[in-house]
Write a protein that binds this DNA or RNA. Structure first.
Length: 296
DNA sequence: CAATCGTGGTG
DNA sequence: TCACCAAGATT
């Protein structure tokens, strides 16, 4: 697994102590946050920086304070409230998850990783994060930050693999503190260390509470040697086109004529293809008279 | 497994 | 400036 057997106890203690003093005051970390609030924050934070999430998270909780309230909203209102967080299918899935929670869980957010994992838009990471953060389950929480931290600290690698590997999963399980109370905080603490100190580019090793225990530092901070992940291009892609179309539909109070969408994305073939895929996704509703709107 | 799916900030 | 990146999930 790893060549050295570091003093995990010391590592845990120092990272947990560091977290106690250095963690950001994110709104969903405030006492009194419901499991539903935690779930919202996790889904919104999938691939979106937390700084942009915070204001939308507050608005959503105020407007739809419970799964039942969210379930009763129209998908279009939900997508519009999602605003510019990106990947709007997440908003739709959150809405579907709310309906599922009403139907299957009495309007409550389920507490086990298995039940959570069965909700739309909830994968392995989000399921364990909600179980851990909202219900104090001592389970490994493995996001991109944690993977990077563990791989540097224990493997001496500069970066994690392009996608979660079996090895990294094993590493996370092996690195979980034995005491439940520590294990529950370990997830956020390791995530926070990755977000603030052990960052992807230009890590702040001078500020790291476990620099002297880090295998990557001990090896002289060697550069990443593994496979490089493809950088996705953006200009002219369907994603850009869909984004442009969705922006128009979000900002319009009602149905939008096709000519208006043509202004937002002039290339006809691509526009039609993207409009179709948005309809298939349930993000757009076609109407009579060649008009479109967010789903009612 | 690899491609797809938004958006905006930043080194 | 612009490639890279940010609490992933789904197919």
């Amino acid at each position: 697994m790893h060549a050295l057997a570091p003093d995990l106890g010391a590592l845990h203690r120092r990272v947990l102590d560091w977290y106690a003093g250095a963690s950001r005051p994110l709104p969903w970390r405030e006492p009194g946050t419901t499991p539903y609030g935690v779930l919202l924050s996790e889904v919104m934070s999938q691939q979106t920086p937390v700084a942009r999430v915070a204001p939308i998270w507050r608005e959503w909780l105020e407007r739809w304070p419970t799964p039942a309230a969210l379930a009763a909203a129209s998908p279009g209102d939900v997508v519009r409230a999602w605003g510019r967080l990106g990947y709007p299918r997440r908003a739709l899935r959150l809405h579907e998850a709310a309906i599922a929670m009403v139907q299957r869980h009495g309007g409550e957010v389920p507490s086990t990783p298995e039940e959570l994992r069965a909700l739309p838009g909830v994968g392995d990471y989000t399921a364990s994060a909600v179980a851990c953060f909202a219900y104090d389950a001592p389970v490994p929480v493995v996001d991109t930050n944690v993977r990077r931290v563990l791989v540097r600290l224990l493997d001496g690698e500069a970066q994690a693999a392009p996608a979660l590997t079996r090895h990294e999963r094993d590493l996370a399980l092996a690195a979980l503190p034995v005491a439940d109370a520590d294990a529950v905080t370990w997830g956020v603490a390791a995530m926070e260390l990755g977000a603030l100190v052990c960052t992807a580019r230009t890590p702040r090793c001078e500020e790291c509470p476990v620099e002297d225990l880090c295998a990557w530092r001990a090896a002289g901070s060697p550069p990443y040697a593994g496979p490089v992940k493809r950088t996705q291009r953006w200009e002219g892609t369907d994603r850009q086109a869909r984004g442009a179309l969705m922006a128009v539909l979000r900002e319009a109070p009602g149905p939008v004529p096709a000519e208006r969408l043509a202004l937002a994305w002039p290339q006809e073939a691509q526009r039609d293809r993207c409009l179709h895929s948005l309809v298939v996704d349930g993000l757009v509703e076609p109407l009579d008279g060649d008009r479109y709107r967010l789903p009612a």
